[in-house]
Design a protein around this nucleic acid. Structure first.
Length: 939
RNA sequence: GCCCAGGUGGUGGAAUGGUAUACACGGAGGACUUAAAAUCCUCUGGUUGCAAAACCUUGUGGGUUCGAGUCCCACCCUGGGCACCA
């Protein structure tokens, strides 16, 4: 038979498929629809790299399988072509971004086609095409109409190099995501989109979606819901400040208030006596770049406001008011009540500025048990100042763990006395100095030694040894030999001590950390003795506050002072203000310009195009100016999945009928890096359009998966600057697209990052060649297939089918390899079986399987054939291999009929010579039989 | 600091609580060849042993279980995300 000439085969079939429009989808077709989607690429000048291939191949496999399963599959592709790299390239070379984009997309298209991806090219879209961005602008006008797009002067992240405002999402560790320059703060009028209005739904609706837990979690964290209360604190000036807290139960411990430096109350407030000092601090904060705030190691700074105080609504006490930059202006209300006893940041601040710390929560550990006995007891943590070590008792042999010194109070004994007594009795040390006595804490536990449930009230005492002088232990008879005395280093003590309550006291005394958990209230008036949970709502009411929900998510900065983006379709008129461009005038096309440099004050290059900027106001006809800001490059991708349904429509962004047929996307795959940005933005746009009854589903994507990164050979990220980028073209040339596809799916788990390996490519190549050669063994005669082969084939079909669904492509391929390995050993193979192998492989390696399919005389494309079915009844043979273990170690295996009953299995197992040898005449204590699997003989 | 994912041969990696190391790469030996490449066959976790065989082994230490890579607890390391969010 001929040689496997992949180059000739691949280009021939690619041409044929295109001519026959094999992969085009029809809107409204009677078959069930399936919409599979992979994130469309940014067509950079570097072309496709091997990382792209992974995700596209995966969705191609899913799409091909669905087609074979009889679905009307839409697997579209397009270009997310607005963005900085192209603009920066234009800036450097003076080339028109349109021309650059055309070149790049042409290149990408050729590369995609050479990979044999089954895209429906008739639906190709491009976000930079005016016919496309007309609708991006149209949707923006809808946001404007509904009040969700607004202009706001505010501090934005400003990249001084790119001269561009950045969204929070584009700032990485205080640096510009694109160029790495340290980001500054700058006040600027910006267009905003009110995504926060949808925060609640964006979080709650994740519930019903088939997204991986990892994706859901990062979306949830990004949205950052937190339930709490807003409480008004009156000021001695007669005004008041609203604060946000998640811990209203600690309000009696609020010993001061902190406002963000940007808080409106501060602005030219005449009641502030030290205004100069305050103003100084504010301007320092403003000039601090984000990165400095972080790199300063969170060292707390702040200024106390002189001239007025606040009144704690719970205690009615006057408390000081501070400003400090550890309170953020744009979260909650920009003001907090500080409870230093129960919040780490407040504690740090209060310690530094010597502010009062009042404990109002007593820790509770363990779980409340029935029939508890109440006892008072102490825990003593003894530190040797000479060695820095901590005294501990090892109770491991009897009660399994290490504890500090502890014990019950006798009668109405004083806790400190009791602690000293316990230390003397248990260790003999006698010269002790009390450092600190902790408030009460509560511990519920079951005392196995006494067989009772206990609720103990613990008083912790922190001691330092004055000297190491000691007497003998004074233990009662029944206490002897139960424990040993040790001096542990602080780190050892922290790791080894088993009791939660002891651990908390360690944190308090030794690590100097406040208790931030919930518990039982104290120093809290009528709420004393109740739990945090019980009082939560009542205490809010008592303090005159209200329950609220806050989110970390901020509104989306939607302006870019750039050229290569969708112009924001509004006109600014001195008389009428912001006037939307009339729908009939859309799209507002980007004018052709000579220069792409932004203006000196960071305006968009569009500001320089006078003929374009100066227009008449659509409302009053007086001279007006166009908005020169453009949209961020997240705009076009926020709705592109809708356009695929009806890409040529010039009356609507997509017809209702087409949307109703295709939406939602059944399976959406993309990069993990897009889970917090693009995924959230596009869900937001879809929900907004759903509320306007313009799209049929509340959520755009039914299922979302993410692929892992492909790293360079050394395990580093591929990047142009490191020169370690692998271009798929060279691989396609050397091994063929089928090998590349197979290799990328085989290399490792799909959702994990994995390093590229040139050497490993030959494996999949050899495999394809073996399948190629296998054709010579195909017999057209009626071949009798052994029962065993039938079972193996059925197992293979099931495993490959299942693994594709779970994206375990690597094991799907190894299953196919195993099957081919076994079939190869036969002297011939039935054409039925060969066809099944080809069909299973067709999703991974579409060209070679198509070639082999036609060479065995099939007329239709393999890709329109039906997916192989397996027979549920033929997944197992009638014999099973039983593992025989002695004491859990495998000593033999026996092959038995599946129907062999348990007692017979036992007898047969005991009869194996190998087993007899290990039994050595002894009688088994127990024999565990797992039907169909194993026998474990326990001696 | 917090959250998430992961740690298995020389390498990439398999393994519903039930024969750990499937599949592939690499390596060794052999066949074919004048030779090489390609291909095919055999072997390939470690230690001890002439062998038969035995013992050890899934980051570390404990635990649950007849049985743990898998479950529980603590710790160490790597990668990713967030970073004063009250």
């Amino acid at each position: 038979m001929s040689e496997y000439n992949y180059q000739e085969i691949e280009s021939r079939w690619q041409k044929k498929w295109e001519e026959e429009k094999l992969y085009e989808s029809k809107t409204g077709d009677k078959r069930e629809k399936y919409y599979s989607l992979m994130e469309f690429p940014y067509p950079s000048g570097d072309g496709l790299h091997t990382g792209h291939v992974r995700g596209y191949t995966a969705m191609d496999i899913i799409s091909r399988k669905r087609r074979m399963q009889g679905f009307n599959v839409m697997f579209p592709i397009g270009w997310d072509a607005f963005g900085l790299p192209t603009e920066n390239y234009a800036l450097k070379t003076g080339k028109d971004p349109r021309v650059v984009t055309k070149e790049n997309t042409d290149n990408f298209r050729e590369q995609f086609k050479s990979l044999g991806l089954s895209f429906d090219w008739s639906r190709e879209i491009n976000t930079t095409d005016p016919k496309y961005y007309k609708w991006t602008q149209w949707i923006f006008l809808k946001f404007l109409e509904k009040g969700l797009a607004y202009k706001d002067k505010q501090f934005i992240n400003w990249c001084p190099k790119d001269k561009i405002g950045l969204a929070n999402e584009e700032v990485i560790n205080g640096k510009c995501e694109r160029c790495g320059t340290t980001v500054e703060k700058r006040e600027k009028e910006q267009w905003m989109l009110a995504i926060t209005k949808y925060a609640d739904r964006l979080e709650k609706d994740l519930e019903g979606l088939d997204y991986s837990e990892r994706i859901k979690l990062s979306q949830k964290n990004w949205i950052g819901r937190s339930e709490g209360a807003e409480i008004e604190f009156d000021l001695t000036t007669g005004k008041s400040v609203k604060i946000f807290t998640t811990r209203p139960d600690t309000i009696f411990g609020a010993t001061y208030l902190v406002l963000a430096p940007e808080h409106p109350l501060i602005l030219s407030n005449l009641a502030i006596k030290n205004y100069g000092e305050v103003e100084d601090y504010i301007s320092k904060t403003k000039n601090k770049a984000e990165i400095d705030r972080v790199s300063e190691g969170k060292e707390k700074t702040g200024v106390e406001i002189q001239g007025f105080e606040a009144i704690n609504p719970a205690t009615k006490e006057k408390i000081p008011v501070w400003i400090a930059d550890y309170v953020l202006p744009n979260y909650g209300t920009g003001a907090i009540m500080a409870v230093p006893a129960h919040d780490e940041r407040d504690f740090e601040f209060a310690t530094k500025f010597k502010l009062p710390i009042r404990e109002v929560i007593e820790p509770v550990t363990g779980e409340v048990l029935p029939d508890e006995q109440l006892r008072n007891s102490i825990v003593a943590i003894v530190e040797n100042p000479k060695t820095g070590k901590i005294l501990a008792l090892d109770w491991t042999p009897k009660y399994g763990g290490i504890l500090f010194i502890g014990g019950g109070l006798e009668g109405d004994e004083d806790p400190v006395e009791a602690a000293i007594r316990e230390i003397k009795e248990e260790t003999g040390y006698k010269n002790l100095k009390v450092v600190q006595v902790a408030g009460k804490s509560h511990h519920h536990y079951f005392a196995f030694s006494k067989n009772v449930a206990r609720n103990i009230e613990v008083t912790g005492v922190h001691f330092k040894l004055i000297d190491e002088e000691k007497d003998d232990q004074k233990l009662e008879e029944n206490e002897k030999n139960l424990f040993t005395v040790h001096w542990l280093s602080k780190d050892e003590a922290e790791q080894k001590v088993v009791d939660e309550n002891h651990a908390l006291l360690f944190q308090k005394f030794i690590r100097n950390k406040p208790y931030t958990g919930t518990g039982i209230l104290t120093n809290s008036g009528k709420f004393d003795g109740k739990t945090s949970k019980e009082v939560y709502k009542d205490i809010i009411k008592f303090a005159g506050g209200t329950l609220v929900t806050k989110f970390k998510l901020r509104d989306w900065v939607f302006s870019r002072q750039r050229y290569w983006g969708e112009p924001i379709p509004v006109i600014l008129c001195e008389k009428c203000g912001v006037v939307p461009v009339p729908e009939s005038d859309l799209p507002v096309e980007l004018p052709v310009v000579e220069k792409y440099e932004p203006g000196p004050d960071g305006e968009s290059p569009l500001a320089n195009v006078e003929t374009w900027v100066n227009v008449k106001c659509p409302k009053c006809e007086s001279p007006a100016k166009r908005e020169t800001d453009v949209m961020p490059n997240w705009a076009g991708s926020s709705w592109y999945f809708l356009r695929y349904a009806d890409p040529e429509n010039d009356k609507e962004f997509a017809s209702k009928k087409a949307l109703k047929y295709w939406m939602p996307v059944d399976w959406y795959n993309g990069g993990m890096e897009h889970t917090t940005l693009h995924l959230l933005y596009s869900r937001f746009w879809n929900k907004f359009l759903y509320d306007l009854k313009l799209v049929p589903t509340d959520e755009p994507y039914k299922k979302r998966t993410s692929h892992g990164l492909i790293l360079a050979e050394g395990g580093e990220k591929m990047s142009k600057s490191k020169g370690n980028v692998i271009n798929p073209d060279t691989i396609v040339k050397r091994f063929g697209a089928d090998t590349l596809r197979l290799y990328e799916m085989f290399m490792g788990p799909f959702d994990q990052a994995i390093a590229w390996s040139e050497d490993a490519l030959v494996g999949p190549y050899r495999f394809i060649e073996r399948v190629w050669k296998l054709k010579d063994k195909v017999s057209t005669d009626k071949v009798r297939i052994s029962e065993e082969s039938i079972i193996h084939l059925n197992q293979t079909i099931k495993k490959v089918s299942d693994d594709i669904e779970t994206m375990n492509f690597n094991t799907a391929i190894s299953t196919l390899m195993i099957h081919v390995n076994s079939v190869e050993k036969q002297s011939f193979i039935s054409s039925m079986e060969y066809k099944v192998i080809l069909k299973l492989l067709a999703t991974f390696a579409p060209h070679v399987t198509e070639e082999l399919w036609s060479s065995i005389g099939e007329k239709n494309s393999i890709h329109t054939e039906s997916w192989p079915e397996f027979d549920e009844k033929k997944l197992e043979g009638k014999d099973v291999t039983i593992v025989v273990q002695v004491n859990g170690k495998t000593r033999a295996t026996i092959v038995l009929d599946k129907s062999t009953d348990e007692s017979q299995v036992k007898t047969l197992a005991l009869d194996i010579p190998e087993v007899k040898k290990w039994l050595n005449g002894a009688t088994p204590q127990r024999i565990v039989v797992v039907p169909g699997r194993l026998v474990n003989i326990v001696l």
